[in-house]
Design a protein around this nucleic acid. Structure first.
Length: 431
RNA sequence: GGAGAGGUGGCCGAGUGGUCGAAAGGCGCAGCACUGGAAAUGCUGUAACGGGGUAACUCGUUCGAGGGUUCGAAUCCCUCCCUCUCCGCCA
């Protein structure tokens, strides 16, 4: 959520930053309602002040022994009643305005950083660096991961459609074990890097989704439980960040680092026909997520180290990748600045997103009211929240099935995973 | 699911209709004193959010959430959420 005060005091500057994003955003309705709300508030609080005064006066008189039915008290009561009538008209109107402003604010995306490159869409993202050219596979005729996976008997898409619907998969035998090995490996790396492991709830409520920005605007992206105010978590960023919702932390508690393995559930509305095969775009996938809550002064540096922590996994697995900085047109709703990691997928000859590392600045903290207090200082400040995948597990699996594919149709297991999987090569499953 | 008890400031915890009580006391935090320095001790200060004001300051809101009664509600009534204890059930 943007700062209403900032919008009020500097509407042109805020509007200019919003205009750099894709989509149209208009601050005018907010400014109008805000002005009306404040006018009402001035009147209302004056009436309330008088009403409070009357209450005190009556109290004083009663204590002093006045007759409760006496004229002096009845006059005051009458005035109190009149004020109550006036307030009963003003109060609901002011509440309505406030709710309206809140609703409008909740639908505005974060402001990009000034340094964020301009651009219309993903084609204008900027490559920051590239790693691992020496690990690009040399062999031709690499099968797409879904084909080699089915040949090896470790992926079953067809039967999973029967059990759930399209865009679901079952991992079998060594496939399931490889996924599990990847999860353990990633968690071991990230906990060693200082992220405290969390296994959060996977069903989460609306407030939680509002806190990080998935609601109200993107309700159609998540699965909802019909009989409860609960949704399937679309990414661990949501429960992890909201762990601290409505809290005032001590500055000394910052920074807070968390990592979590969770399944993630996404409806993928509007992506019909895109990535219909394989592990790239499923309704359910596994991910190890990194979340940081930090002091505003350190947030840019923390963002850089977060990206490095995600990259470390790809480097350990020797998977070629590149780092992009997203342009304003491709920036997510809550992000002020974002780096994507893209891993090389040889079957399609492209880099595909495997991690997205965002600095949400104070945007989520304001929505979720996550603040901190500096010892001795008056008031509170909002923390900065950051999140990134470290990494998307299914996409890592597909990258391994392709980059480590051998000409004879087996899969070499990356060195660092061998202790986890207790084998060096994947051969076709017997049954 | 049944019975009971609760939800108050950054934390713990008093407070059951009235000015003096946004709220005792404690912890924490900050300043000062004491000390070579610290600990301990003593004194002082310390809620958040919104409005107005250059500021000093000032008005309002907030005692789980939302309604109601009243001139006046942390305190009474209704609904909901959550926590704890006992019983039942269950992995």
């Amino acid at each position: 959520m943007l700062d209403l005060k900032q919008i009020r005091e500097n509407p042109q500057a805020v509007q200019a930053q919003l205009n750099r994003r894709s989509g149209d955003y208009d601050l005018e309705p907010i400014l109008i309602r805000d002005r009306q709300q404040r006018e009402l508030e001035a009147t209302r609080s004056q009436l309330q002040a008088r009403s409070n005064e009357i209450g005190k006066l009556i109290g004083q008189k009663m204590k002093a022994g006045s007759d409760p039915q006496g004229a002096a008290i009845l006059v005051l009561k009458e005035e109190g009643n009149q004020i109550k009538t006036q307030l009963s008209e003003l109060e609901p109107r002011e509440k309505e305005y406030k709710a309206e402003i809140e609703g409008l604010l909740l639908n505005l995306p974060n402001l990009p950083r000034l340094s964020t490159p301009d651009g219309k869409n993903e084609t204008e993202n900027v490559e920051v660096r590239r790693w691992g050219d020496e690990y690009l596979p040399k062999n031709d005729n690499i099968l797409p991961h879904w084909e080699i996976g089915e040949k090896l008997g470790i992926l079953d898409f067809e039967r999973s459609v029967k059990v759930a619907r399209s865009r679901f998969v079952s991992l079998l035998g060594a496939g399931a074990a490889l996924e599990r090995a990847l999860i353990s490996f990633m968690l071991d790396c990230q906990t060693a890097a200082g992220y405290g492991e969390v296994l959060p709830p996977l069903l989460i409520n609306s407030e939680t989704l509002t806190g990080t920005g998935q609601l109200p605007k993107f309700a159609e992206e998540s699965f909802r439980c019909q009989d409860d105010d609960l949704w399937l978590t679309p990414t661990a960023e949501v429960p992890l960040t909201n762990l601290y919702r409505e809290e005032v932390l001590e500055a000394s508690q910052l920074p807070i680092y968390h990592c979590a393995y969770t399944p993630c559930f996404r409806r993928e509305a509007g992506s019909y026909g895109k990535d219909t095969r394989g592990l790239i775009r499923l309704h359910q996938f596994n991910k190890v997520e990194l979340v940081k809550l930090v002091h505003p002064e350190t947030s840019e540096a923390e963002h850089e180290t977060l990206v490095r922590d995600a990259e470390a996994i790809l480097q350990a697995l020797k998977l070629p990748y590149r780092v992009l900085e997203l342009c304003t047109g491709d920036l997510g709703f809550s992000a002020a600045k974002c780096y994507d990691l893209e891993v090389w997928l040889p079957s399609s000859g492209t880099y595909r997103e495997i991690s997205s590392c965002s600095n949400c600045w104070d945007f989520q903290a304001r929505r979720a009211s996550i603040r901190f207090k500096e010892a001795g200082k008056k008031g509170t400040q909002f923390v900065h929240t950051l999140n990134g995948s470290g990494l998307a597990v299914g996409r890592t699996m597909s990258a391994i099935l392709e980059n480590y594919q051998q000409p004879e149709g087996t899969i070499q297991i990356p060195d660092v995973l061998q202790p986890y999987l207790k084998r060096e090569v994947l051969i076709p499953e017997s049954g």
